[in-house]
Design a protein around this nucleic acid. Structure first.
Length: 1000
RNA sequence: GCCCCUGUGGCGGAACGGCAGACGCUACGGACUUAAAAUCCGUUGUCCCGCAAGGGACGUGUGGGUUCGAAUCCCAUCGGGGGCACCA
């Protein structure tokens, strides 16, 4: 007979909500309580509702939160909705409903589902990124980004006014490409580039140029750049949102095209984003992913002069016109190519040069005779999508420009090629090719029959590989100035040489690009920006916020790069101070709202500030953040970036937002066994997803697949574990042992039809069982398969606890007529709160059980703190099992047990607690203490090993001396045959652990 | 190709230098029941010896190594998962 979980769970969920049981206290209320900020990654409320992956992390943080409350912490544990974004908009377009409606509906559903799990959120702090009262502050942060720059001296974001002051005071100067640098003549500063003064002073600029310089330094800026345009979604996407040339959402093709877009200068923070990974407690693998994504490379920039052209080769005026301020050097007589390399030690091995096809120098150096082939190649490259380029990686292509560069040390003439294996977006868009020591250069050189010159040989007399590049470290050879020097040292030495001779300098580059921040969609935050007649951006003032998204009926993408908002003329056209402006009609990407939501939870209703500084200081940083690893380089990198900007500008007090982060592992679908029948009626099995015809894949139990080897259609069915038996390495069908089948666990996906919805499980077994099962499946971080069959174990456990403390009558009388039928009780009749706890009495705890209880208190407490919930639950089950023989349960034992169970199964625990006569929720009841004295036994059982194999066990007093123990061990009965007549060479006693006798 | 994680019974997992398989599921046997469900009790890594009590051998993907002692540490190798991928 089942305990009345439905009634109990509804009762307590209502109780918690009505009594604001989980309200986090503001700092002034909290007094001396320590604080804990425990955060979940808030969900995107999709139309399909919660799946069992969400509650995994949510339950974990809930257990920690409830535990910490019992330990006297003031806990902030909030929930909210990341509700802007593509899926809601796509759905809205397909069903012609406003995204606001679908979003609201989805949020309702998510809230209902989440609340049905009894998670201890402070619902008064709920946030919703699509609420104008919320996105007002998203826009406010954007204005901070727009109105700041990254100061090269302070290495931090500062208000843009300061930049103007620094330029005016000539501490900073303007480089030829519009960049801002330290003034080289400024006291104590080293000259930065080639001796010549190429920088200009502020007063030398026209007001127009001055504005351009300022706008070019903002952390939020617009730029015409090649971006990932996704025609199917009608928007551009960030690099992080493009996977294998397809959109992360929907898997549509993405092409590169140049467009004017908003960018955020995350690259300025690359170094700090790497460095501060050292101060956060995050999984090493995730830190590594961020480091790889940022992709820091240390090396040198080296200048290669272009060889004087043959008499007939001079860059034409037309070509010059294209080369604007972007060129390295404006002096026609002194053209040079700047390359970036991580291996300056291989400089003597350079045999040719390669420029990216789009490189600005190409037009200036290409002699007329080569123009046609160059243009043809460029056209060919430009016509290929990013995806095609990746597919064709194997075969190197390129063409000779007809121009030559001079080796900076030897003066040798080296041909200059263009090739698409050199990317314009990385480094300087040009490389020095060292075919002997770089695989790509080697392939290219082999194909184009260019010389290969060995300049590094491996150490320890190993021979360099034949028919391949030697890319490892070794000793420099054939390198006049650095012969015999090992690679690491040679790099440093070469940079010194280059710097002395003003041929180059140390340099660092990153793979990370600036963050493409605008989208051509309706359902996002509008930019608080006006554009003047020449499209120059002007910021709205803080007082103008929020700039609300106009209510429109037509929110569909235009099919062109024009955003949908551009169709709303009455909204876009603005007159201000007599001048006509247009609103920025792009919107912000989905990530904007999630970059800072953890700050808003701290002070969610503040109408005057993003967050009150005193509260921010009290709660930050987030002490525990749990979420999926899929956000490793998206949300988690973006949020760190915004946080650092806010930190620099003094709006937050910590350099990092999330002190400790844990990734919950993916929950895979239930083990699938399939058999298929082919046309001949033979049973076959087929597993690889790629073998399956996605379109016709599933309707639940029957499956249709295509055999990719012969295209034959196969009809199949799903099997359960009962249908198969283990046979050697695999499985075979019980009904037909000749057929081998394969059992696999796939990622849950709609198309596979293996997504598990928590609702029916909660209905059938209750939320407490569901929570317990999810936590018991295995370690939080591990990937693990769902197995519906196993849920019943936790259900039995909770029922057993109920029966043990309340007795069998409890359910019948408390919850109305319990159906005699099998399975759980669905009664919704409220429990009466009667306090008669039939089987709990004021009797002493038997000695052995008392010890076990103290061990459990210790273990469960420790396990919760290290997030090992599976073993904590095992310990509770064990203690419950050991209560098996009791006629009456001692009250002290029952109460401690309930308190320990409470974080895991809060509804049942509250109910039992009440029935034991308590009138207040156990939420802030102190966690039980264990008595260390109870953990040690007076005697202990020690295994006795002979040569490392256990042969017997002896019982000895805990405080027995080593001599006494060894003496007992040597006399142990079952040890005798193994030591009899042999010489004992060594007697080992490991205190509290074992004895090992080593015999000859 | 490079980087990271992972491999333990029929299944999920525990042990993280010291008694491998805690705890749960499954399966089997028993009790209760007119019967079934539920519940309770017992058995359940493989193999061997024994009527039995009991005893032994093997065993953590594979091969080596370190150690009195290895699932655990080191080297190599083979599976599985994830990330990055022409990044100079």
């Amino acid at each position: 007979m089942a305990y009345p979980f439905t009634a109990i769970e509804k009762k307590w969920q209502r109780h918690w909500l009505e009594n604001h049981t989980f309200r986090a206290l503001d700092p002034e209320e909290a007094g001396a309580m320590p604080k804990a900020y425990v955060l979940d990654m808030f969900p995107y409320p999709s139309g399909s509702g919660l799946h069992v992956g969400h509650p995994e992390g949510y339950t974990a943080t809930d257990i920690v939160s409830r535990f910490l409350r019992m330990r006297g912490y003031n806990v902030l544990h909030p929930m909210g909705w990341d509700a802007f974004g593509l899926p809601a908009e796509q759905y809205a377009i397909q069903h012609n409903t406003h995204p606001r409606e679908t979003t609201e509906r989805n949020i309702e559903n998510f809230r209902r589902q989440i609340q049905s799990l009894g998670l201890s959120y402070d619902w008064e702090r709920e946030v919703n990124t699509t609420d104008p009262a919320y996105y007002r502050w998203t826009q406010w942060i954007f204005l901070r980004l727009f109105n700041s720059y990254f100061d090269p001296i302070e290495q931090k974001a500062m208000p843009i006014e300061r930049l103007e002051r620094e330029l005016f005071n000539e501490n900073l100067v303007v480089g030829p490409d519009g960049s801002v640098r330290l003034n080289p003549v400024h006291e104590g500063m080293q000259e930065l580039s080639g001796g010549m003064r190429v920088e200009r002073l502020w007063r030398e600029l026209t007001p127009e140029e001055q504005r351009d310089v300022i706008d070019g330094q903002r952390l939020a800026y617009t730029d015409e750049v090649p971006v990932n345009w996704c025609p199917a979604l009608g928007t551009v996407l960030a690099n992080e949102e493009v996977i294998d040339g397809k959109s992360e959402r929907g898997g549509f093709p993405v092409e590169l095209r140049p467009m004017r877009q908003w960018m955020l200068r995350i690259t300025s923070y690359a170094d700090r984003l790497i460095a501060d990974l050292d101060v956060v407690n995050w999984p090493e693998s995730l830190k590594e992913m961020q480091r790889n994504w940022i992709g820091k490379s240390v090396g040198a920039e080296i200048d290669f002069a272009i060889a004087p052209p043959d008499a007939n080769v001079i860059a034409t005026d037309a070509a010059r016109g294209e080369v604007t301020t972007g060129a390295e050097d404006d002096d026609e007589e002194d053209l040079s190519i700047t390359v970036f390399t991580t291996r300056p030690d291989t400089l003597y091995g350079v045999t040719y040069m390669v420029l990216a096809p789009e490189h600005a120098l190409v037009d200036r150096i290409t002699p007329d005779a080569h123009r046609e082939t160059i243009e043809a190649y460029r056209t060919q490259v430009a016509g290929r999508s990013e995806r095609d380029r990746q597919v064709e990686v194997k075969e190197k292509t390129g063409v000779f420009t007809g121009a030559y560069a001079l080796h900076p040390l030897t003066g040798e003439r080296m041909p200059i090629y263009i090739a698409d294996y050199v990317l314009m977006g990385y480094g300087t868009g040009a490389v020095m090719a060292v075919p002997a020591h770089d695989e790509r250069d080697y392939e290219f050189a082999t194909k184009f029959k260019l010389p290969i010159r060995q300049v590094v040989i491996p150490l320890n007399g190993m021979t360099p590989p034949e028919n391949a590049a030697f890319t490892g470290e070794g000793v420099a050879v054939n390198s006049d100035l650095i012969n015999g020097v090992t690679t690491a040292e040679a790099k440093a030495r070469m940079i010194e040489i280059l710097e002395e001779r003003e041929l180059g300098h140390r340099s660092v580059t990153y793979k990370l690009r600036d963050w493409l921040f605008s989208r051509q969609r309706y359902w996002g935050e509008p930019f608080p920006i006006l554009l003047d007649a020449s499209s120059r951006p002007t910021a709205l003032s803080d007082a103008d916020l929020p700039l609300t998204l106009p209510e429109v009926a037509d929110f569909k993408p235009t099919g062109t790069p024009e955003p949908p908002l551009s169709k709303v003329k009455e909204w876009t056209l603005v007159e201000r101070d007599g001048a006509a402006f247009a609103r920025e009609t792009n919107t912000m990407p989905q990530w904007a709202g999630s970059c800072w939501y953890y700050l808003r939870y701290i002070d969610p209703k503040n109408a005057n500030m993003l967050v009150d500084p005193a509260k921010e200081k009290y709660w930050m940083p987030v002490d525990l953040y749990v979420g999926g690893v899929e956000h490793a380089v998206l949300h988690l990198l973006y949020a760190r970036f915004w946080h650092k900007v806010l930190f620099d500008l003094g709006h937050v007090s910590t350099p990092e937002p999330f002190a400790r982060l844990v990734n919950q592992g993916l929950i895979l679908g239930e083990t699938e066994f399939h058999v298929f029948e082919n046309a001949a009626g033979e049973l076959v099995s087929l597993y690889d997803v790629r073998d399956m015809d996605e379109e016709a894949s599933t309707d639940g139990t029957r499956l249709v697949a295509l055999d990719k080897r012969n295209g034959a259609k196969l009809i199949g069915r799903r099997l359960t574990e009962q249908d198969v038996e283990k046979a050697g390495e695999g499985y075979r069908l019980k009904s037909n042992p000749r057929v081998r089948v394969d059992g696999r666990n796939f990622k849950m996906s709609k198309s596979r039809g293996n997504v598990v919805n928590p609702d029916p499980i909660v209905e059938h077994y209750g939320a407490d069982t569901f929570r317990l099962y999810e936590m018991y499946m295995g370690p939080l971080e591990a990937q693990k398969p769902w197995n519906t069959r196993d849920i019943v174990g936790m259900y039995r456990f909770l029922n057993s606890v109920w029966r043990r403390l309340v007795g069998d009558e409890g359910d019948g009388t408390e919850a109305g007529a319990a159906p005699a039928a099998q399975g759980p009780n669905h009664s919704t009749a409220p429990t009466t709160g009667t306090t008669h706890a039939l089987r709990v009495h004021d009797v002493p705890i038997p000695e052995a059980l008392d010890r076990q209880m103290h061990r459990t208190i210790k273990k469960v407490g420790e396990d919760i703190q290290s997030l090992r919930f599976n073993t904590a639950i095992a310990e509770l089950i064990k203690l419950n099992n050991e209560m098996g023989g009791l006629q009456a349960v001692p009250r002290a034992l029952a109460e401690n047990f309930i308190l320990m169970l409470a974080p895991f199964a809060p509804h049942l625990s509250e109910e039992l607690w009440e029935r034991l006569g308590h009138h207040k929720s156990l939420t802030r009841r102190p966690w039980p203490e264990y008595d260390p004295a109870k953990l040690v036994e007076s005697t202990m059982e020690l295994p006795v090993q002979v040569n490392g194999k256990v042969r017997d066990k002896i019982a000895v007093a805990v405080d027995a001396s080593e001599e006494q123990i060894l003496e007992v061990a040597l006399k142990a009965e079952k040890v005798q045959p193994w030591i009899d007549g042999k010489q004992i060479r060594k007697k080992l006693y490991v205190p509290q652990k074992l004895v090992n006798l080593v015999v000859a």
